[in-house]
């Protein structure tokens, strides 16, 4: 297991989970339990890939991601009777996943003030603006060209390089579709903090993609010439 995710081998294996949640599971009437099981199994089967993908983006480690999904599924099953509207299951399950990740982190991974100040001093970075400098506007559709060339692993690497607090808010808002208010509640931070982290995270992400595109020669020819002159 690797930091920042402090997995505890065996804690979320089937036998351990049964012992941990047996008291609350035993309280369900048999008919409810049967329909709950059918609903829950179908939903988890449907969402397994997305739960795992989101967990992997948070933990950076396949084994830790699997532990996180198993813990999420167990907690969701135990809490299912409290879910009033089952149409909200998906968002609710992702909230449990995010809450579990955050509460299990070995220590808060707060972005240092220096990192935030540095990003603020450089100003909001916009990939679109970089690709649309006035003297290059004749160049067709540079943003589409770059998006076509960026691989999944390029974006994955840029996301993984974000400070943990920034990456977490991107995962909550962009992957899970949580609102700013919901993200603030999950993270236990003010709404303004979610806004500022998201803004800095997107700036850092786009800056990283721009730098990667330059280094890997993914930019249109005119951009490459421009940076030879830099």
């Amino acid at each position: 297991m690797t930091a920042p995710w402090p997995g505890t081998p065996g804690r979320w294996e089937a036998g351990a989970i049964h012992a941990r949640f047996a008291p609350c599971l035993a309280q369900r009437p048999a008919m409810t339990l049967s329909s709950d099981r059918a609903f829950f199994s179908a939903e988890i089967e449907r969402l397994a890939g997305r739960l795992y993908g989101t967990a992997l983006r948070l933990t950076h480690n396949p084994a830790d991601a699997e532990d996180l999904v198993a813990e999420t599924v167990t907690k969701a099953w135990a809490a299912l009777p409290k879910l009033a509207d089952r149409n909200c299951f998906e968002k609710w399950a992702f909230r449990i996943l995010a809450n579990t990740y955050i509460s299990n982190r070995r220590r808060p991974c707060e972005v240092t003030a220096a990192t935030a100040a540095e990003e603020d001093a450089q100003g909001q970075f916009s990939l679109f603006d970089r690709l649309h400098q006035p003297f290059l506007l004749w160049w067709g559709n540079p943003e589409q060209e770059l998006l076509n060339k960026l691989l999944r692993e390029d974006i994955e690497r840029a996301l993984a390089a974000l400070p943990d607090d920034y990456r977490t808010v991107v995962v909550l808002v962009e992957m899970q579709g949580q609102s700013y208010a919901e993200a603030a509640e999950i993270l236990s931070v003010p709404l303004g903090t979610v806004r500022s982290r998201l803004s800095r995270a997107r700036s850092l992400l786009q800056r990283a993609l721009w730098e990667h595109a330059r280094a890997a020669g993914l930019l249109p020819h005119a951009h490459r010439r421009e940076h030879v002159r830099d």
Binding site: A14, I44, L51, G53, V69, A70, V73, R152, I155
Partner: peptide, 28 residues
Amino acid sequence: LRRKVAALGDEPAPPALQRRLKALMEEF
């Protein structure tokens, strides 16, 4: 761009995880 970022949240669940979840749900 955000669609590409969001797509990172979808990965095939590894067979080991699928087996683990199945075992869990058999206990529920």
